[in-house]
Structure formats: C-alpha cells, structure tokens
Design a protein around this nucleic acid. Structure first.
Lengths: 143, 143
DNA sequence: CACAATTAAGTTGCGTACAATTTAATTGTG
DNA sequence: CACAATTAAATTGTACGCAACTTAATTGTG
C-alpha cells in the first residue's frame, strides 16, 4: 500500500529544500557583496546588459513580477548599485542601468559560480545531465 | 571565452525558478484546502504522525527553524487544523497534534501528488532518476 | 479625434525564510 | 545543591514572492 502523501516521495519537497539550501550556501559569499540571493540573480542579468534593461524584461528573465521587483530594485538603487529612469519615448517603461558600484561587483563575484559548483560534488557531466532534466521539467511545467 | 556568470548556466537559478513554478502550480489545488504550500508540507508530516510531533522534530523534517514555524503553526491553529500544547514532562517542548479538521483534509488532499505528477510530463522512471539525483545533491550540499 | 482597452510600474497586504535575540526550562558539572 | 551551559520556542526585523489593486501612459478602434 503506497501512500502518495509521503513527504519523502515528493519532487516538490526536494526542490523546496534545495532552494533553501542553496540560499544558505550562497549567503556567506553574497554577504561579501552585500547582496541577497535574488539581488545577485538580478545582477547576473544586469551584467549581461550593460546598456540597461527594462523592469519588464528583467522580470521576464527572472520570472518575477513588478510586485517583487519594484521594491527590490529600489533597495538596490539606494545601495547605489543601479539607477532607475523612465524612458522619454515611453514614460511607462523604467530602464535599469548599472551604476559604477554595481559594475565593480562583477569582478568580486567572478569566482562564485566555480566555488558553488565545487560544493555540489558533482562531475561536470553529471551536472549537465541534471540541469538538462531540470530545464526539460521547467519547460513542461510552463506548458 | 565562457562566462560563468551567465544566469542560464546556473543550477541555482533553475532550482529557484522551479521552486516558484511549483508553488504556483500547487496554488489552485491548495486553495481548495485553504492551505499555503509550506502549510501543505507541514500537513504531510503531521498526517504521518497522528500521535503528534514536537516543533523541533517538525522543523528538522521540513528544514525550517522556529522563526518560521512558530507563526506558521499559530496561523494553522487559528484555522483549527491543529493544536499546540506544551509537554508536561518538559515544558520547553511544544507538541503539535492534528485537530479533526486537519485530519479530514487528508482525504481531500489525496489526489494532489498524482495530479502534480501528471503535470511534469515525465515518465515514472525519469522522475525517479531525477529525484535520485536531487537527493544526492542535497546530501552533498549538506556535507 | 474620442475613448475604451491595453500595458508598465508601483502599492498594499499577507505569508513565508532566516539571522539574531530573548525567554524559560532543563541538564551537566563541580 | 548551585549555577553555568544547553536546549526549545518565541520574538523581532528585514527581504522576498505574489495576488489583487491602483496609477499613469500608450495603443487601438470606430
């Protein structure tokens, strides 16, 4: 008699646990950058868009809405990591641009991915296999 | 020249995205139970412990501390899903027991895991393979 | 051109997470 | 037994996520 309501059997619980675990493992490294984990993810996007990016586009890449992003970006602006400015050509759009302090952080953050990878104890092959599965799953769940 | 600071390459970002995605996919089903996702996870543990369980033990199974659990359990108590009572033999310990309303919810929740599984679009084999990888990863990250 | 519909951000309110601290009870040690 | 150390919950404060709503600008349609 298999009980499907067992915590240990649930994929969702593993994802939930892993997400919190990752957050805690990133914490020490991110503390040096004075970034939270979601702020770090936002910086990853911004470092790829030196020309700036709209809040909407940032939200699409991070899968976050303005309800989360607006206050987050405000806090980061206060820390002088970025600037927020409305487009003259379309006043609805707020463009986010890296400030000098935000740009400089990239150098400091450079080694974080490698260091985190080593914590997984996975081989590169195994990691690729896992991320491929996860991408497929994300795709399926997004329909 | 590979840039390790690419969002798309990061395992952590996939986990982060998946976690939010799962939360949203569970939301409609959980709305019928009037439970949040973490509350549902707590119920999964409680359904396995009809005799009751301490806050500490619940926290160990969910990987949550009292800072999160205390207010969460208080809200669930107010909804008459469970009771909270200090042990007479050790007044530090608060025991959580399912209330009748909490027990009844198990029947309503019975089909949730199956329904969520079908959303993944994965074969049972593939799902087992993925969860095995995730368990291994969680294990490694916990050292 | 008028004006309804759409779009982009922001705001509000609620429920987590979690670090840091506090409170109270119990245990260990001399 | 006294009392320092430990333990279990709770509290405080900050930062997400997100649903629901608001505000303001732009677009589409007749």
């Amino acid at each position: 008699m298999s009980n499907h309501l067992l915590l240990e059997k649930q994929l969702c619980f593993r994802i939930y646990t892993l997400n919190k675990l990752m957050g805690r493992l990133y914490a020490p490294a991110l503390k040096e950058l004075a970034l939270t984990y979601p702020q770090y993810l936002a910086m990853l996007v911004l470092w790829q868009h030196p020309e700036g990016i709209s809040v909407k586009s940032l939200g699409q890449q991070l899968d976050l809405d303005s309800g989360t992003l607006s206050p987050l970006l405000k806090r980061m602006e206060k820390e002088q990591l970025l600037s927020r400015e409305r487009l003259v050509t379309d006043e609805r759009v707020v463009m986010i641009k890296l400030a000098p302090k935000g740009k400089q952080l990239q150098t400091v953050a450079k080694d974080i991915p490698e260091n985190m990878f080593s914590l997984t104890g996975f081989t590169p092959d195994k990691l690729v296999q896992l991320t491929t599965s996860l991408d497929e799953l994300i795709d399926n769940l997004n329909n």
